[in-house]
Design a protein around this nucleic acid. Sequence first.
DNA 1: TGCGCGATTGTAATCGTTGACATTGACTGA
DNA 2: TCAGTCAATGTCAACGATTACAATCGCGCA
Lengths: 362, 362
Amino acid sequence: MSSGDRQRVTVTDVARAAGVSTATVTRTLQNPDVVKAATRERVMEAVRRLGYSPNPMARNLRHGSPSGVVGLVTAGFTNIFQAWVAAGAEAELRRNGLQLLIGSTDDDPAREPELARIMIDRRVSALLMMPDGGERDYLRPEYTYGTPVVLVGRPAGGLDVDVVMTTDDQAVDEATDQLLSLGHRRIAALAGRADSFRAAQRLSGYRAALARHAVPERQELVVTGLTRPQEINAAITELMQRPEPPTAVLALNLGISSGVLLDRIVNRRNTAFVALDENDLSAGLGISAITRDPFELGRQAAVLALERITDPTARPRTVTLPSLLVRRGSGELPPPSAAAGGVPGGGAGEVYRADGCGVARD
Amino acid sequence: MSSGDRQRVTVTDVARAAGVSTATVTRTLQNPDVVKAATRERVMEAVRRLGYSPNPMARNLRHGSPSGVVGLVTAGFTNIFQAWVAAGAEAELRRNGLQLLIGSTDDDPAREPELARIMIDRRVSALLMMPDGGERDYLRPEYTYGTPVVLVGRPAGGLDVDVVMTTDDQAVDEATDQLLSLGHRRIAALAGRADSFRAAQRLSGYRAALARHAVPERQELVVTGLTRPQEINAAITELMQRPEPPTAVLALNLGISSGVLLDRIVNRRNTAFVALDENDLSAGLGISAITRDPFELGRQAAVLALERITDPTARPRTVTLPSLLVRRGSGELPPPSAAAGGVPGGGAGEVYRADGCGVARD
DNA sequence: TGCGCGATTGTAATCGTTGACATTGACTGA
DNA sequence: TCAGTCAATGTCAACGATTACAATCGCGCA
């Protein structure tokens, strides 16, 4: 049959069918006002009948015009935080008639440049980069050929590009400070890839609070490099079985937060706990968490991209969104040794329902 | 500065720099063996020095070759099930040197055709469609121009395309059957969008089991159209407050599964419960679930796409992957009225934490 | 010495779309 | 009536990469 033909209808076909030149077809589509109404009708009829749509590659080739597509590079499709960022960017771009396409590095820093290159080569109107890989040289202007680049949640590192950041360090500092004020002295901090900017940013908040309270950092309470669920589970189990287990736990990314939460439920622990980022259940279960509104993060990234598309000469900007500590109880628990004083803000009354912005799907 | 130039390096530039013709540059890149070693060196050096990479649009324009990019249309980036499908497709495609790009309809069926069109126009090598929208006419061959299309988790509807399906109906039948055998007679079924194929497929399994056991279906126990978390929460609350509440609950998609799970934990319910699809916590909490291995689903879709790319004339195929009922305890609970008999089966080693339900922080 | 062959490389047409420029024809006002 | 104007449409080169075909070169062999 003809299903495999991939034989496309071109302007020439339409022009012949309508008895006009290709220029008139193009004009009818691009600038209808300059074409006589009768001709316009004839052309449109042919377009409809043949099912013509312009080949965007040829169009792009001729006039290096914006493609109407914005690319986003994520660390992984199943990274739900980054998925919400993508959703936020998508919504804002769509409001402006642009389409978002996303690609995943699958947490492999080596694939960032490849994916960025693919998107730049396909002439995305802008490129949003979320992974937290090390090397960023491939985003230097000589490689991006003027494609606007927005970095999400990681710094520019001398690059002349727009950036959207969050104040994770301040929020972790605030959470740590609160735990220290409650009397905690052994506060574990669990983080992801040791070489990532984000882990460093968050740990710096932890250390700042410790320093302010003149509490020396204990090396053995800082665990980094946790990525796989088994590692996370092993780490938390080992921590809690020590002779001197931590009295409070800071989980410094979403995966770790989920792992610690599962451990709390399964093993019925009541250690003080502050999560970073939320999952389906954390709000409903009274987990104090540092939240970052990923949807807004993505939206802002899209806004920056749109502005740079409009005015490529504008000075790159850095937008900072607040990371907020939401107190729901688990982060307000005192250490076991402390007298049973009033728990500030804690308690079952603060158990919220999860009514987040999400829509359930299948 | 020159950062906004978007002035790309072309074959011509490379050719001039290397002192050869554009044809030789192309040959060096496409078919190095026919170029003299010395010339090849000179060209490669120029390519490196200028940072040249071929414009895929121009390449595509000339020779309608496969683009090396496969498009995937999802209902939403934050749909974690579909994200895992994407991850599976990504892995398989990558093994074969192809790149996956995904776009989201944000659960708006009207955007399926738009997105499909964008991807087809950009000459993706294949198109994977996941949303469960109604209309599918836009995938007729006259609109896809031979782009291989694979439907994931929804039927072909007379279309001549590859399909990957799961046996949700059979698994739901099996789960319902088991609950009925345990003595349950009031089994609630909660489903998503009423007009979706998937909800219908799953409910048909529920009804088949009821019919086999000669248990009449109770309209008031079947709730459809649940999409937002609030709706899900309201529905489960209302159900359980009835004079005759259900003794068992079937959640027929992931969002609903999460909602019911949260309700169980918060309200310490111990009603029999079978979820469809899993979230972070369901395995650890002993929730019986119908699982579909989304990663494998995506991988199979990619395999079909790859085969059709290789041989566009092959007859479209339908691959069916099993939906499995994993027994972890919550689905093996008897109704309250039943005597405390042994729980049949219980999944032998598969019962991880049947007692994990209803735990709290005190 | 001269012909022919194979190994390299160059030339130019092509893909589909666009837009600057040229052309056509009708109509206006002097 | 005729130059001038304007609206409508046609012509053709260009975008960048590719490739069929042509051209060139060196060398062996008659």
